[in-house]
Design a binder for these strands. Structure first.
Lengths: 206, 206
DNA sequence: GTCTATAGTTAGATAGAC
DNA sequence: GTCTATCTAACTATAGAC
């Protein structure tokens, strides 16, 4: 039975364990057995609570990603806010989310690449909640007002997402290259919250 | 027996088939059976020529990636060449390689994330052939000469790689979002050869 | 060199006792 | 709800005939 008290329910223990294992081993590397071990329970129990691996991971993803949507929406709502400030807020929110849930970028990538149907029905619906169209309009409008130089909105979107996401995807590679430990690399990622925004703004301004 | 003539040897047929399947289904999705079918031969033959899946794919990767190394090296050799031209040449060469071998980015990512040991022993050695240190020195030197604003070289490296690589990784997602077919999206990627360089240069110049 | 048949391996999923 | 034991599916890899 699920209690309201401080004791974690088994269900929550499994969710915590799954998040940990996914963060450590990535989506594909996360075994149901690993999750059960990490939670200190039996593998069958994981299936008892979450029908199968896919629905477990989809739930975890939604819980993490759903928090991002209102933030991003809020950022692009106020049409009075400075365009550059919106870019700052965006990279901040996005990298913050990825720092808290390092498995998300690879999760999305995997869903997109290996399971196009599931992606179209599930993830895509989530992602469509993000106001990309608002962002595109903002860009065009900023170009009109001569606030920024002309740029193709989708290209800019790819620039920004690439800079935000890629370091999380290629973390082990960069760590090796730069000869950094986990903490040092995280610091580098923290800095990117403003670093990326600065880079973009510097490039766009006339 | 391997002939010098125009007839593809079985070995070459397998390599071609593997490249095709990998490009279509990604590394993880590429089955030995798929490769055998594509090559029009038996699955056992794939094992006969290439001991196992891993060594087959490592070979394919090396063949594709090895071509990039001399190019990148050449770019960073001439110290007389304009710094911005080097950036242009780099994005050009990198995106060109990825366009020809779309499976490479995901391949590298997978190796790095799921198989750290294999990465350290194989792939990393290849990647270390890329003159990143040269590039870092160039950046610092360009800053000294007031050609560009101050920037942390590793951050810039992450910016550039992210912008070059990410669209290939997230191709199905972007296609959906932007509502483009394969050809249209490839055109977008083609444009990024100069688009990314322009974006970087615009951001760096004083 | 090439094939058929089969062994081996790894995980996800389920049945059924407690 | 929780466990042990087992089934099944999907692949990789090998043995052995031709």
């Amino acid at each position: 039975m699920v209690k309201a008290g401080k004791e974690d329910s088994t269900r929550d223990k499994i969710l915590d364990a799954a998040r940990k294992v996914m963060t450590r081993k990535g989506l594909a590397g996360a075994r149901m057995q690993d999750i059960a071990d990490e939670a200190g329970i039996n593998k069958a129990l994981v299936h008892y609570y979450f029908r199968n691996k896919e629905s477990l991971f989809e739930l975890i993803f939604k819980e993490a990603f759903i928090l991002l949507i209102p933030k991003i929406n809020e950022i692009f709502k106020g049409s009075s806010v400075d365009f550059f400030d919106k870019i700052r807020a965006f990279t901040e929110a996005y990298i913050e989310m990825a720092l808290k849930n390092p498995f998300i970028p690879m999760f999305v990538l995997n869903e997109v690449n290996t399971n196009p149907d599931a992606f179209n029905n599930g993830l895509l619906t989530q992602l469509k909640n993000l106001p990309f169209n608002e962002f595109y309009k903002e860009i065009d409008s900023a170009v009109q007002k001569k606030l920024i130089r002309p740029i193709h909105p989708p290209q800019l979107m790819m620039h920004i997402l690439g800079m935000c996401v890629f370091p999380f995807l290629a973390k082990p590679m960069f760590k090796k290259f730069l000869n950094l430990n986990d903490k040092e690399f995280t610091t580098l990622l923290e800095m990117r919250k403003v670093e990326v925004a600065d880079f973009v703004i510097q490039s766009l301004k006339i």
